[in-house]
Every structure is written in structure tokens, then in C-alpha cells.
Nucleic acid binder design. Structure first.
Lengths: 221, 221
DNA sequence: TTGTGTGAATCGATTCACAGCC
DNA sequence: GGCTGTGAATCGATTCACACAA
């Protein structure tokens, strides 16, 4: 019996695995068969020591003096991310963002599949978005379908309620686009993507560039 | 002369400031005038020691034995983020996501303003999205307008080129939604928001929940 | 000789715990 | 008495640097 990944891959490493996998996929398409940590790190934009340390957490095997086999490493990382089986998504909230995501055709080739669209507005339920009919949360519950991942694109005030309903349904992973924190039981994973937060962080840098420039002048004499 | 924020707020702290500001805004609306670090931390979902340490980097003043004045603290954080002046945005790429963002009406109340929409497709240029006419990058250049922040919602293969054009225009902050890394000069800030990456991180947790459950059983005897 | 895998060292961020102030 | 602000301790993540395998 093999011992693929010993235990406990650090969160920081997990956060970089998708980037590694994307780079490896591109390299495969370019016909690259083998690559060194130095070169792969350059493609991804990290340091080679970090890449090697990250891969060591997967118990991954490169070949000393040679590098990594691209196909082998891709398979290792894909396996670690659990991409053997396709993951089903439900998108809740058919506003601008929800409709945009529901119409996005990049999920299927990456191993994800939108299996349900939900909204609470009777005017919206029954309409078709991206070739799929929008249903109510009650309809979803009755269908018995339990998507792997719930994508929440409702306004902030509705997000917690929707998340509670998804968790009650059995959904254990949530991607939250609402600009608010949501509470979930310990066994549920949530990631929040908030455009407003990102813009405010950029605003900070914008605001402090002036300071940096002033410091640079002082440093220069 | 006052010494507001000494120098160098840690990145991790900057990343949490938007959350603090959002919580404080809600508290203001609820009529809360003053709050302790313990209570505010509970609202935001961090530890109180972390909140106090974060605020100490801003040179912020609470009152010992009392807590923080909500209005005062809001102003401090807003000032640190540079929200005194409104920040202008250009959205490049009028696909599903670009149109959704361009139609989003949540920017204005938060201090951001979409001032230009750009696409390269002649079929799209001249059309109206969210009440604003789409122009070409050349049109934007000729207008002399230099938005504070460039929001890139193009396909991955076009993102680097668009970013280069924005940087050449004088844009110094980029919010990149394309699923790829973009190279920029040192003085330009980039934040990448990638839905595919977020989904893969959730896939990891989904895949490893089984392991965790098995471990829990073992622990239980 | 080359480049991985990894202990050791470093760096940064979080948490603790309490002195100091209201 | 209660809560902030902050040094000290801890924890985790990054980087260094080199032994070792091919």
C-alpha cells in the first residue's frame, strides 16, 4: 500500500496547488514533458524552494538531478485536490453575478458542473439561465440532489439564510460572493470572495503609494 | 504635528481593515456609538487580541476601560484606506462578468465609481452597458482619463496585454479576474480573484473531509 | 554534475498575558 | 473594575543551504 500524502497539507500550500496545476496544464499543452523546480517556479511566480517544500508535503516524487515529470506531477496534484470525480455546483441568487457565473462555460472543462440554479423570486423561478431552468430552494430540496459546492451570489442580507438552507441540505462547501461573513458548522468549508474588499485593499495601496514615493525621495537624499 | 500611522501596516492587517470598516458601518446604522474590542472582534469573526494589535498599527486610539468610539474608529480606518477621495474604475472586458460588474450598483455608495468600460470587439464597442457606452482602449487613451483602478475581466490569454496597456496609461492598481498570473512593474499593485482557484481549494477540503471523518472515528476509539 | 528533498534558520503573524490608564 | 495597548511567547510559513540520489 502506498502512502501518498502523509497528513496535514498546510493551508498556504493548498492555496498554491491550483496555480501549480494550471501551470502544469499549460506546459502539457505546450508539449513540455519534464521541468525543474526552478523553471516551474518561474512560470507560477514563486520561489523554487517554496515550490519544492510545497510538493514535499504531497510526498511527491521528482527525480534528483533531473526535475519533475509534468504528467506525473499533474496527476499527483489533481489527485490531492480530489479532481478524480466531477464536483457539482448549485448557484443561488440570479442577480447579475449569479447569471454571469451560471452562463460561464469554463467550469465543465475544469471538472465542475453546475447542476442547479436557485432563486427566491417567483418572477425569476422558471426562467432559463445558461440553458438551465431556475428553481426554488424548496424545489431543490425535493429533488434530493445534494450538490458538492454551493455558490452564493445573493445580497448580503440573504446570504446567511441561504447558507443555512444549503447546509441543512447537506452541502459542505460554500463559495460566498456576498459581502459579509457567514457562520457555518465546523465541518463546512467556506471561502468568501468579496470584490469590495479587494477594491479597498487596492485603495490602501493607492493611498500609500504617495508615502512610498516620498520615502524614496528622502532615501535618495 | 500628529503622528497618525507610524509606517508599514502589515499586509495581513490591511486585508482585515475592510472587514472592520464594514462591521463599523453596520454598527453605526444600528445606532451603536461605542464598542469594545471583544464585541467588535466577535462581529467580524477574529480574536480580540488580533483586532487590538491591528488597530495599534494604525496608531488608533481607543479608551482604556471603555472601548472604541464607533464613528471615530470608522473615520480612522477609512482614512487609512484612503477613502477621502472617490476612486475611479475602468472595467476592461465586456463578457458576462464584466457586464455584471459594470451594472453593479454597489460601487457608488462605497466610494468607487466606474468611469469607463472598455472592450476590443467592434461589435461591442458603442453598445451601452449599465447606462454607459463601451469604448475601445484607444478611445480611453485619447480621452486622457487615467482611472485609479483597472478591473480586468478578459479571457486569460488577453489579460497580460490589457494590463500592459493599462499600466502604460498610468493605472497603478489592477483587480484581475482572469485566471492567470500577470506581470507588472514593481510600483503597480495587482490582486487576482480567481473563481476556479477558489473552487479547487474547496475541492481539496471536500476530498479530505473523508480523511478527517476517518481520523475522528479513530480518535473516538 | 545537477537539482531534489529537507533540516535549520529566519521571518512574519498570531496569541498570550499583563502593565497602565480610565 | 474593566479594557486598551503592547512586549514577550508562540506558532506557522518562507527561505537558506546542503546532503544525497541519479
Amino acid at each position: 500500500m502506498v502512502e501518498p500524502a502523509p497528513r496535514g497539507v498546510p493551508d498556504a500550500t493548498v492555496g498554491r496547488l491550483p496555480g501549480y496545476l494550471r501551470a502544469l496544464t499549460e506546459l502539457t499543452e505546450q508539449g513540455v514533458r519534464s521541468i525543474s523546480s526552478e523553471d516551474l517556479a518561474a512560470v507560477v511566480g514563486v520561489r523554487s524552494a517554496q515550490l519544492r517544500k510545497d510538493l514535499s508535503h504531497l510526498g511527491s516524487y521528482g527525480v534528483r538531478g533531473v526535475g519533475y515529470d509534468v504528467a506525473m506531477l499533474s496527476a499527483q496534484i489533481a489527485g490531492e485536490l480530489g479532481l478524480a470525480d466531477r464536483l457539482s455546483l448549485v448557484v443561488v441568487g440570479m442577480g447579475n453575478l449569479g447569471r454571469a457565473l451560471s452562463s460561464y462555460d469554463g467550469f465543465t472543462p475544469r471538472g465542475f458542473e453546475v447542476v442547479a440554479l436557485v432563486d427566491e423570486d417567483p418572477q425569476v423561478i422558471g426562467t432559463v439561465v445558461g440553458g438551465r431552468r431556475v428553481v426554488s430552494m424548496a424545489d431543490l430540496r425535493r429533488s434530493g440532489l445534494v450538490p458538492a459546492i454551493g455558490v452564493v451570489t445573493t445580497p448580503a442580507h440573504a446570504a446567511q439564510h441561504v447558507v443555512d438552507e444549503l447546509v441543512a441540505l447537506g452541502v459542505r462547501s460554500i463559495l460566498n460572493f456576498a459581502p459579509c461573513r457567514v457562520e457555518v458548522p465546523e465541518e463546512v468549508a467556506v471561502r468568501t470572495v468579496d470584490v469590495a474588499t479587494e477594491l479597498l485593499i487596492l485603495a490602501f495601496h493607492h493611498h500609500h503609494r504617495a508615502d512610498a514615493a516620498r520615502d524614496a525621495e528622502v532615501d535618495a537624499g
